[in-house]
Simulated scan of single mutants.
Amino acid sequence: MDPLTVMRTIWRYKTFILPAMLVTLIAVVYVFQFGPRYFESNMSYAMVNPKLPTDKELDEQPQLSTLNKDNPFLRSSDPSLITEVVIARLDSSAVAESLKSKGLSADYTVNKGINGNGFVVTITGHGESEEQALATTRALGTTLEEELKTVQKINGADDRFLFTALIINAPDQATEQFSSRLRSVIMVLLGGAVLTFGAVSLARSLEARRDRMNDLKGASADGNAATMPDKQVSSLLIPAFSPDKEFVHTQASGPVTRRSSRTLSATDGESLSHSSNR
C-alpha cells in the first residue's frame, strides 16, 4: 500500500485510529516494563569414572577384594550410557512435580554437554525471577547427584566402584532472556494492528451509513420541492373576503395584498355575493 494513502487514511479516520494506536502504545510499554520476565541459569557436570583398585592395591589391601563391585554400568560397552540414563531420570514427570511442590519452576532442560560429549551433562533452569531460576538449577543438580548414585547401587555396589559427578561450572547468576519480553511485545502489536483495522472498518461503516442518510434526505427534499407548486395553486386561487378587514386577492404567481379605499360593510358583502351567484 502507498505510504501516502496510509497517511491520508489515518488522517481521515483519526478520530477512530488514534485512540486505537494510543491504547496499543500504552499496552506495549506496560508489557515491556512490567510484563512477566524469563530468567535462565546454567550448570554443568562431568561424569568421572570410578577408580578401580589395581593388582598392587589388592595385594597390599586384601580387604578390597571383598568389596561389592557389581556396578552394571561398568560392564557396559558404551561408557556414556550412565549419562543417558541420568538425563532420562531428570526428564521424568516425577522430577518436575517435585520441583513444583517446592515452589520451583518445572521449565528446565537437561542435555549432553558441548558437541554432545557423553561425559558432560548441562542443566538449564528457567524461572520468572533470577532467584527462582537459580534455585531450580541447584535443585536439579542435587537431584542429578542423587539419581546418579541410585541407578548404580541397584545391586549394592560399593561407593568405590561408582561414577561420580564433578561440577564444572556452578550456577552463580541468572540472565534475563529478552526474547520472552520481545515475544510478548510482538503479540501486543499484533493485537493493536487488529484493533486498528477494526477501528478503520467501523469508521468506514459509519461514514457509509451517514452518506446513505444524506442521500435519502436529499431525495426527499427534491420530491417535496417538485410537488409544492400544485398544492399552492389549488389553495391560493380562492379569494378571501373579510368584513372590516383587508381585501386579499391571491394569484398563482403569489399573494398580492391591496388595502381597500373603504371598509366593506355587511351590505356590500351581500351584494358581492349576489353578483358572484349570477
Rank of each mutant, 00 (worst) to 15 (best):
T5C: 06
V6W: 15
R8W: 04
R8F: 09
T9I: 12
T9P: 07
Y13P: 00
Y13R: 15
K14R: 10
P19V: 01
A20I: 03
L22A: 13
L22S: 10
T24I: 02
I26N: 01
A27W: 10
V28L: 04
V29A: 05
Y30S: 09
Y30E: 04
V31N: 09
F34S: 06
G35L: 01
P36M: 02
P36E: 12
R37Q: 11
R37W: 09
F39W: 09
E40K: 05
M43Q: 12
Y45I: 01
V48Q: 14
K51F: 02
T54Y: 08
D55H: 09
K56P: 02
K56M: 12
P62H: 04
P62K: 09
T66E: 03
T66F: 02
P72L: 06
R75K: 14
S80A: 15
S80N: 10
E84R: 13
V86L: 15
V86R: 00
I87F: 00
A88R: 11
L90E: 00
S93P: 03
V95I: 15
V95L: 12
S98H: 09
K100L: 15
K100Y: 12
K102W: 10
K102P: 07
G103Q: 08
D107N: 05
V110W: 00
N111Q: 13
I114D: 06
I114F: 13
I123L: 12
T124R: 15
G125K: 00
G125Q: 04
G127Y: 00
S129A: 01
E130W: 07
E131M: 05
E131R: 04
Q132I: 15
A133N: 13
L134D: 03
A135Q: 14
T136W: 03
T136A: 07
L140T: 01
L140R: 00
G141R: 05
E146M: 06
E146Q: 15
E146S: 10
L148W: 00
L148V: 14
K149L: 13
K149V: 14
T150E: 05
T150V: 06
V151S: 01
N155V: 04
N155K: 07
D158V: 03
D159Y: 09
D159M: 11
D159W: 14
R160N: 02
I167V: 07
N169P: 01
N169G: 08
Q173T: 02
A174S: 09
F178H: 07
S180N: 13
L182F: 10
R183K: 06
S184V: 03
V188F: 09
L189Y: 08
A193K: 06
L195F: 14
F197K: 08
A199G: 06
A203V: 10
S205G: 12
L206Q: 12
R210H: 05
D215K: 08
G218M: 12
G218V: 12
G218Y: 14
A219G: 11
A219R: 07
A219K: 08
S220M: 11
A221V: 13
T227A: 06
T227I: 15
M228T: 14
P229M: 10
Q232C: 07
S234G: 14
S234A: 12
S235M: 09
L236A: 10
P239S: 06
A240G: 04
H249L: 13
A252C: 02
G254H: 03
P255L: 12
V256H: 10
R258S: 10
R258H: 08
T263N: 04
T267E: 14
D268R: 03
E270L: 07
E270D: 08
H274E: 11
S275E: 15
N277V: 11
